[in-house]
Write a protein that binds this DNA or RNA. Structure first.
Length: 227
DNA sequence: GACCAGGCACATC
DNA sequence: GATGTGCATGGT
């Protein structure tokens, strides 16, 4: 079997093990696309529980619409999103995203969604404060575009099991998924959430491998080489 | 009290 | 180009 096929099978195997263990994750099932995009920015390097509080505050203040949030003074936004941490930088980042959304797409996520994937990703990446992970989270979870989101957990799990080197660039990790799995929104949605689940419970900076569904697993090419 | 959480931009070498 | 640092709250 070719290495490429091996890698594809490895990724499918990991998905099946994680799904069997953790079950469906139901990420962002209820929120509007706009709420999802706001959450994607607020969750940067931050626990999701804190983000939920911030989003709750925004909702309560009527700030979860593009127009309302754009017109809200920065210090007011910062106070509302305070629980999510980095509230000053995240206020700037939210406002920067809102400029793109309002001025570029009439404040409508539905209109933004009409754009072709590559162009849209470039637009998002041009916004100060939106990097590859945040852009891809918005594309996948808010706009239903088939891009795989690579985060710290994904890199940690794959590198610890010898699938890829930890310091490979974002696009190298992402390319592996795109080549191996095709472009499947529902699969990408679930799979990325499963990486977060296994990362939270087991594949932490200090790993707790006991009981992990991937405990002891090696990729196919390593098994063949006897490594 | 240290460590960690669904990153990113910017400064410096 | 690589490496370091600031941003900040809240849970474990």
């Amino acid at each position: 079997m070719t290495p490429k096929k091996d890698l594809a099978n490895d990724l499918i195997y990991i998905y099946e093990r994680l799904f069997a263990f953790f079950g469906p994750q139901h990420w962002w099932p209820g929120g509007t696309p706009f709420e999802v995009a706001v959450g994607a920015i607020l969750t940067q390097n931050t626990n999701w529980g804190n983000v939920e509080r911030a989003i709750g505050n925004l909702k309560a203040a009527g700030g979860l619409s593009a127009g309302r949030l754009r017109d809200m003074p920065d210090d007011e936004v910062a106070a509302l999103i305070r629980p999510a941490g980095y509230f000053n930088v995240k206020t700037r980042r939210l406002k920067a995203f809102l400029r793109l959304l309002v001025e570029g797409h009439g404040g409508s996520m539905a209109k933004m969604k009409r754009l072709e994937l590559t162009a849209l990703r470039q637009e998002l990446l041009s916004v100060n404060g939106i990097g590859p992970e945040t852009a891809d989270s918005i594309l996948l979870y808010a706009l239903d575009k088939p891009v795989f989101v690579i985060d710290a957990y994904t890199k940690r799990v794959l590198s610890r099991h010898g699938v890829m080197g930890h310091d490979e660039p974002y696009e190298a990790f992402q390319g592996l998924f795109h080549r191996s799995l095709g472009r499947d929104v529902a699969l990408f949605n679930e799979y990325h959430a499963l990486f977060v689940a296994v990362g939270k419970d087991f594949c932490k900076p200090r790993p707790r491998c006991g009981g992990c569904p991937l405990e002891g697993w090696r990729p196919a090419r390593c098994q063949k080489a006897g490594r």
